[in-house]
Structure formats: C-alpha cells, structure tokens
C-alpha cells in the first residue's frame, strides 16, 4: 500500500502546497495542527482519492482518527478498498 502514501503525498505537495514545504511533509507529520492542509484542502484531497482509487469515502469517516497523517490515511484507505 506504499503507493497510496505516495499518491496522497504527491497531491498534498503539488496541488495543495504548490511544491513548497516538501521537507516538512513526512508520512507521519500531523497534517491538521501543522497548518499544511486546511479544510478545503482536505475536501479536495478526498475527492482526488475517491476518483483515483474508485472508492467512496463517507463524510462520517473523515475524522481525525482516519486523516491525521499520510500513514494513518493509507491505513484507513485499506479498509475502504477491501470492503
């Protein structure tokens, strides 16, 4: 599933951060308190993942527990891809 991590990181880095702050964006970085992703960025990221992975991410799943870092998101995506 390392592909999903790259997919998420690439989108955040190039689409949300315009290629800047690459050094701060680790797989385990807390995206929500670092200010790297804002609320609309999160909406765009989710739309992107739904399209690329052909999955449906219900609003109630978009929580801190599932989206705090790239690692955590990748683990969560596994659960929707297999279900």
């Amino acid at each position: 599933m390392s592909d999903n991590r790259s997919l998420i990181r690439d989108f955040i880095l190039h689409e949300l951060l315009n290629g800047e702050q690459a050094d701060e964006l680790e797989f385990d970085t807390n995206l929500l308190v670092s200010g790297l992703v804002d609320s609309l960025g999160m909406v765009r990221l989710i739309a992107h993942l739904e399209e690329k992975l052909s999955v449906k991410i219900p609003p109630e799943d978009v929580t801190i527990e599932n989206f705090i870092s790239i690692d955590v998101m990748a683990d969560y995506l596994k659960t929707v891809q297999t279900s």
């Binding site: 807390n30 929500l32 308190v33 992703v37 804002d38 609320s39 799943d61 978009v62």
Partner: peptide
C-alpha cells in the same frame, strides 16, 4: 484539528 474535519 477539529476545525479542518467537520465530522470530528
């Protein structure tokens, strides 16, 4: 972190 994720 809550401000970014309305479901949380």
């Amino acid at each position: 972190e809550y401000l970014k994720l309305p479901a949380s």
